[in-house]
């Protein structure tokens, strides 16, 4: 067992690497608590039930996107018969006015960076604009 020291050292390195996520999370101060998006106070209901929105809002947005851009259909009629203007910054962000406390909280938690915002504008982020 001439290699004993090398083997033990390698084992330690292996163990540290293996448990790295634990140490990293400790050091970074992240918690296992879920995200806490801030809901709008003025509105009680969204365009679809909350369970649906939570899981599939991106699919709804994709439908809206293709309706508006590709089919020139700008109004979306919800299953309950109400109609909405299909618009991310015009409809979604009108109620969810605080993108940072709503959209971003979950997206940051989930580690996703939707590229919507590379082009679509959060009206609140524009200084001195009327909207």
């Amino acid at each position: 067992m001439r290699d004993r020291h090398a083997i033990i050292a390698a084992l330690i390195v292996f163990f540290v690497v293996l448990t790295f996520p634990i140490w990293y999370a400790r050091a970074a101060g992240t918690t296992s608590r879920g995200p806490e998006p801030k809901l709008p106070e003025t509105e009680k209901t969204c365009v679809m039930p909350v369970e649906y929105m939570r899981a599939s809002h991106m699919k709804l947005l994709l439908t809206w996107r293709d309706d508006v851009v590709r089919r020139n259909v700008r109004t979306w009629i919800a299953p309950d018969g109400k109609s909405y203007k299909a618009s991310l910054s015009g409809t979604c962000l009108r109620c969810h006015a605080n993108k940072a406390e709503f959209c971003d909280r979950c997206h940051t938690y989930a580690g996703v960076t939707p590229y919507c915002w590379e082009c679509h504008v959060d009206p609140a982020s524009i200084k001195g604009s009327g909207t």
Partner: peptide, 26 residues
């Protein structure tokens, strides 16, 4: 200089051109 919020900007790497203001025609 001044972003108009009710129209998207574009991202790098895509082509753009006049759309005859289809959003206004609508």
């Amino acid at each position: 200089a001044q972003i108009t919020p009710d129209f998207p900007t574009r991202s790098k790497g895509v082509v753009e051109k006049c759309t005859f203001c289809e959003e206004r025609i609508a």
